[in-house]
Amino acid sequence: MNQSASPAAVKARWEHFPHDADVGVRGFGATAAEAFEHAGEALTAIVTHAPIEPRVAVAVRCEAPDLELLFVEWLNAIIYEMAVRQMLFGRFAVRIDGARLDGTLWGELVDIERHAPACEPKGATYTALKVAADASGLWSAACVVDV
């Protein structure tokens, strides 16, 4: 499963990759921050493929000693807000400043009929965790999410 910004996009914005029991998420972008944003979309796509209205903005902040651990923190921050607010998020903005990440999540309350949520992310893991840029400068941020 993957999604492109447009049919002409050279590279998908995000993708899921298989894990025996769970789901891998990978976001792509011109910067690490953009890859993190698109990985947020991949996380939401574990739950639903239905469109999410950006009705409410939620600010999150996390810190970690390196970019890979920061990525896990970012996904776990989204999972936490999904759980306690009973919300789904469809749009993400990320600013990374050294060890710190400031993010904004836009979304709406879960509507069981409209979103038909398939399953619930429990936590981001360190399995298949990788944040890196390839030779062309394209960033990707990936890990397996326990569902």
Partner: peptide, 13 residues
């Protein structure tokens, strides 16, 4: 449920 998931997340880190 969510409690166990969060404890797993907290302590893994």
């Amino acid at each position: 449920r969510g409690l166990g998931h969060q404890i797993g997340t907290d302590f893994l880190k």
